[in-house]
Amino acid sequence: MHIAEGFLPPLQCALWFAASTPFVIHGAREVIRKAKESPENKMLLAAAGAFTFVLSAIKLPSVTGSSSHPTGTGAGAILFGPPVMAFLGTVVLLFQALLLAHGGLTTLGANVFSMAIVGPWCGYAFYRLVRRVNGPAWLGIFLAMAVADLATYCTTSLQLALAFPDPVSGFAGAVTKFLGIFALTQIPLALAEGVLGILLFGFLGRV
């Protein structure tokens, strides 16, 4: 669920673009470096981008009754690192905006910030943390996927609360409202995505 076109005021659109740009440029540099290393990496990075797109288009077995889609950025962060995901996530968001009308162009900066930057970095941080303390691999993968998903939606809620503070209770009230509606429906989904991650990496380990 990305912020739709026209949903954020112009100034905030610009601010989120400004906030995302350094991360995306950093990721793009990393991607160019990898592509120069070997042209084969171009294909593999493109495959990873395509996989992230398809993951977000796959329907999971129903959890909350509604159809639900994973974000998949946690898996990407483990496999390629958060900087690369900042770039690939941007490409995927652009594709989603133009091929599926999910998200928008003026809100691209905000969506990139939540899905391609905060999500992967948070997921990756938890993954590293678990590995650092010699925790089990499955826990690292589970947390990377679940946290990436949750962090993305919490960020989206904060972005929306910032744009639409509550007339009565201000920013705090708005955060409560948006977190309530997004994060609460998203918690079972985030856990589900974590489980999916364990199963997916388990499958990949067996073949």
């Binding site: 793009a28 981008g49 490409v91």
Partner: peptide, 12 residues
């Protein structure tokens, strides 16, 4: 390279 990766992403 970035545009090529994005274009390949589209094909894949």
């Amino acid at each position: 390279p970035l545009i090529e990766i994005a274009s390949l992403t589209y094909r894949l």
